[in-house]
Design a protein around this nucleic acid. Structure first.
Length: 445
RNA sequence: GGACCCAUAGCCAAGUGGCAAGGCAAGGGACUGCAACUCCCUGAUCGUUGGUUCAAAUCCGACUGGGUCCUCCA
């Protein structure tokens, strides 16, 4: 398995710290609104990464946070005249619902800032103790100049950062690059600490959570490229200071999703929400996987329509295959795939995924498989081959997160389908058309 | 202003030194009781321009055109 490591800026062979176990952390949402289709990209990308490792027999320990303390949440709470918890709970639930609709797993560790406050405060206190942070008038800042590695991840030099800085000069800070760990405030939800009454900056939560959940370095840290600087750079800075390592062995960053060529973000209002997508959500997932995760991806309704059709084709082929096997009582479990054409397709699929999760090529393999199945469905049934093809299809769909439920036919349904087939053989087309209409209305063909 | 990325057929998109995958659209054909579905065939001097090499979409330089980050953002 090769993974492009953003920290070293090169393709590297993936070796987990502990054999057979993969630890992953992905930066999660700030919960003040419904997620848009761009927010869904890292969710789907890293869910697919997780699914692939699991399909290879590895145990994946996966965590992703909820930022439930933030200026925007406080502002929203004020606007709506409710407390912050009401807002964050509402949008955490909405997030999980949207994630599930994209067939991304929700069974992962979900730490919240509000539940991590003592550990975040301890983390900050620890940084002060070792001289990597300082407190001024109740605010606490990280002392960036003390860390010569700063800028490695985002490939920046300290001098460039200072000269190119558009950050307003904060007189209190020692250097404009120093970032806030704790901010003194009495507005909105806040906590009492030795430094002041206030709340944390947003860079400490992830490292404090990773420290607590994983105890040591993790294998993979994921997130969008836009988080590289400053957020991930600052995570690394804090971790280097406190733990002398860079949090993760592999840093993975997914590219942005643009809307009709324009940047999409909640703050500009230029958004399409996941819950408002009017196509099958799995078609949207397929669209997201149709481009390599590191490349930018441009969304347009027309582009999505293509995958809506693609998805329906796949769905139809898989259903037909399943129905045929079911109708003939030929469905089997634990099928070994050894037909040479299927083995070739499987090899291509696996090679693609092993090459830094090349999902576009994995989708090509899925396409080849569908084509092979469609051809075989027109021939005299070879149930051995068809069962193998079904097993392979199920595997591909699981890994890509495009799996969907198929239910076995009842005896009555089987009988109906057989009657329809017989009517056609008998050239009783009036009866055949009636039966076909009935079967279509039941969603069986 | 500083840092960085991208440019492959009408559209989407793989390929990162050895004759340019795949999908959509388009055209042709096959199958079919009618439908729908499906299958087969047809398309590229890889943005422009210099260079390195036996060999370049792929490496290096310049140019042009897009985009990202430096501020909240996934």
């Amino acid at each position: 398995m090769k993974i492009f490591n953003s920290y070293t800026n090169q393709l590297e062979t993936f070796v987990p710290r502990h054999q057979g176990i993969v630890s992953m952390y992905v930066c999660g949402p700030t919960v003040y609104n419904y997620i848009h289709i761009g927010n869904a990209r890292p969710v789907v990308v890293f869910d697919t990464v997780r699914r692939y490792f699991e399909s290879q027999g590895m145990v994946v320990k996966f965590a992703s946070n909820f930022t439930d303390v933030d200026d925007k949440i406080i502002q929203k709470a004020k606007e709506e005249g409710v407390d912050e918890k009401t807002i964050s709970e509402k949008y955490i639930n909405a997030f999980l619902k949207d994630v599930a609709s994209l067939n991304s797993r929700t069974d992962y560790i979900k730490p919240k800032v509000t539940e991590y406050m003592p550990k975040i405060v301890d983390y900050i206190q620890g940084l002060i103790t070792i001289g990597y942070a300082y407190e001024i008038e109740g605010d606490v800042y990280f002392r960036v100049s003390k860390l010569k590695e700063y800028g490695q991840l985002s490939n920046r030099k300290l001098d460039d950062l200072i000269s190119g800085s558009r950050i307003e000069i904060n007189e209190k800070k020692e250097s404009p690059l120093d970032f806030t760990l704790w901010k003194k405030t009495e507005e909105g939800i806040h906590w009492h600490t030795n430094f002041s009454d206030g709340r944390p900056g947003w860079h400490t939560e992830c490292v404090a959570m990773i420290d607590d959940i994983f105890g040591e370095e993790i294998d993979i840290h994921g997130g969008g490229t836009d988080l590289m600087f400053p957020h991930h750079e600052n995570e690394i800075a804090q971790s280097l200071a406190k733990n002398h390592h860079t949090v993760a062995h592999y840093w993975m960053h997914n590219g942005r999703l643009n809307l009709e060529g324009e940047k999409m973000s909640k703050s500009t209002g230029n958004v399409v929400l996941v819950k408002d997508l009017n196509v099958n959500k799995l078609a949207y997932r397929m669209f997201l996987l149709s481009t390599q995760y590191r490349s930018p991806l441009n969304y347009s309704p027309e582009a999505l329509d293509v995958f809506d059709k693609e998805w329906q084709k796949v769905q139809k082929s898989v259903e037909q295959l399943y129905r045929l096997l079911d109708l003939n009582d030929q469905l089997k479990d634990n099928v070994v795939v050894n037909a040479s054409d299927l083995v070739d397709i499987n090899n291509y699929f696996i090679e693609s995924m092993e090459a830094d999760f090349n999902t576009p090529n994995a989708l090509t393999a899925l396409n080849q498989l569908m084509k092979a199945i469609n051809s075989k469905l027109r021939q005299k049934p070879d149930f051995e081959w068809l069962n193998q093809a079904y097993a392979l299809t199920s595997k591909f769909l699981f890994i890509l997160g495009l799996d969907f439920n198929l239910t076995k036919l009842s005896i009555e349904e089987k009988s109906l389908i057989k009657q329809w087939e017989q009517a056609r053989i008998n050239k009783d087309f009036e009866l055949a058309d009636q039966l076909r209409q009935l079967l279509v209305s039941k969603g069986l063909i």
